[in-house]
Design a protein around this nucleic acid. Structure first.
Lengths: 305, 305
DNA sequence: AGGATCGATGAGCTAGATTTATGGATGAGG
DNA sequence: CCTCATCCATAAATCTAGCTCATCGATCCT
């Protein structure tokens, strides 16, 4: 311990009221011996006995009383300064939501956020979440919520809103044989090697990104993991690999060396969800979920390619 | 860490001046990472970012600046309250000496203290030191100095003044055969069992209390340790044991069942010394030593029985 | 005396404080 | 544009302190 601690002042204050080590300890949630030590430390640091004590009687010394008088004011001021500062911080936090987008940020959704922000006096800050790490940022409180691909089975997280599902497209190199075809079927997936995200995401979630087999039972290869979409597209353009992407991404990411093919018969669509911590959810998140429901409930992002 | 710490405020204050984590760390004597952690902790506790920082730029946020403004005053007040209190304590400590007496407190010496106290505006509080523990109280700072029997060979302690040596007397039961004799010689010590102090005293010191053998080489028994003079006298009165005591004690402790005999030829007299911590000696102790020298240098406690 | 109450103290466990090493971001200069 | 230097954040590892439990000795009550 390098210097006098707030804790010790607090302890002395309570002790001055109680004049009893045991009760002081109880009030502060310490053991009696800890109170004894804290006071002794404080005394050592100040350099004089502040409390006269026998097993029968506890009383402040003259210097102790003087010290206490002088320190009480500043102590309380400091305490209230902390309270004021964290009060302000909490206020501000209430008016600000930090929301992450998994992978890319789609205008279709930020549009809804803009509306929400305008109507509810809340600032919404958006951030991109790394591909392989869909939940971490929300779980450790760096973000208030996130838009990620479902399914999400985390006890620490709640899915507050499910966006309408969207079809997925297969990204392949323009030079790939399949790229010639107008459209492909889900059975064609058996002939390509599909990339999957890799990171600290739970394995059930990574597995859900790529179907294990075609409806007829042919296994689908997924030999390689990627950590960013850019990395994935580069591998796809290279010709060896393919990648399943959702419609908005394909629309926004146009590359001459990559073609996006609708996949006929692909049962599992991509569905985004708004997630937040099960504990400690910001109250406005529910409002946001309601706004999203209002906006996307019927129309919103269509399932059509 | 349960609450905001003084340390963190200090760190924020310095950081606000330096606007540089490395230099802040240097000024506070921490590592750079520690500063980073302290600030991060403080922010977590207050609930908002107080310092905007990139690897290139450090600046207070709006809330940080506000918090700092509000906290600076109370912080400085508290600091000065501590300083004032420990200043007062130090003042008082300067005017007060706590001096221990080993075993019993002799008027011959306290008289000198009274004189010292009157002449130098210093309060002298005296306390008795347990028999078996001559040095502990001074070493752990419970006393500023002590009058104990020499020799003292402790690196932590300084012998500031040596009182004139005094003869030692042998205390025996009135019923003891030796008690009949007018005087005894050192050779007679071989026939009694002499008590020695016992406790956390170093063994060289305990051994010095009782000579190992008579000049002619006869071993002197010392089978039993005692922890108080009272205990020793009780054992002596019981008839089995004997005890070597110094003259003032014999003079002050008169019991019909105990007799004190001069011992002819006993070479090692008893000598008291004023000891204090080698480090951190109170400055007035040297003055006290000078006063003692003045008083006892020539006359003082005589060596006559 | 015996019992009850109370603060101090020593041993021992754990969490927190601190450092060292390293990484990733940013801006400068070739 | 690339490399280098600077700077803050973070992970791992170490060491200190905070804290509790158990116990003691002192004091007061009856």
């Amino acid at each position: 311990m390098r210097q006098v601690q707030v804790q010790q002042i607090e302890c002395l204050l309570v002790l001055a009221e109680e004049l009893h080590f045991g009760r002081t300890a109880e009030r502060l949630g310490y053991s009696q011996s800890r109170v004894s030590q804290l006071i002794a430390d404080l005394e050592r640091r100040v350099g004089t006995r502040l409390v006269d004590r026998t097993s029968r009687r506890v009383a402040l010394t003259r210097l102790g009383a003087q010290f206490l008088d002088e320190v009480r004011g500043p102590y309380e001021t400091m305490t209230s300064v902390f309270a004021a500062a964290s009060g302000r911080a909490r206020q501000r936090a209430l008016r600000q939501l930090r929301i992450g987008f998994h992978g890319n940020i789609y205008e279709e959704i930020t549009e809804a956020f803009r509306r929400f922000r305008a109507e509810h006096e809340v600032t919404v800050a958006v951030a991109e979440i790394p591909l392989g790490s869909p939940f971490s940022a929300v779980i450790d409180g760096k973000l208030d919520a996130a838009v990620v691909e479902l399914p999400v089975h985390e006890t620490a997280l709640t899915v507050g809103y499910r966006f309408p599902p969207q079809d997925r497209l297969l990204a392949v190199s323009s030079a790939h044989p399949l790229a010639e075809r107008e459209r492909i079927t889900v059975e064609d997936l058996a002939v390509v090697d599909i990339l999957h995200p890799e990171g600290d995401a739970p394995s059930y979630w990574i597995a859900a990104r790529v179907p294990p087999a075609t409806p007829s039972g042919a296994p689908i290869r997924s030999s390689t993991g990627i950590t960013t979409v850019q990395e994935g597209l580069a591998l796809v353009a290279g010709g060896e690999k393919a990648m399943l992407v959702c419609t908005p991404l394909a629309r926004r990411t146009v590359r001459s060396d990559v073609r996006y093919l609708p996949v006929e018969g692909l049962e599992e669509p991509s569905q985004l969800g708004l997630i937040w911590r099960a504990e400690s959810a910001a109250p406005q998140l529910r409002t946001l979920a309601a706004v999203l429901d209002d906006q996307f409930g019927k129309a919103g992002i269509t399932t059509a390619a």
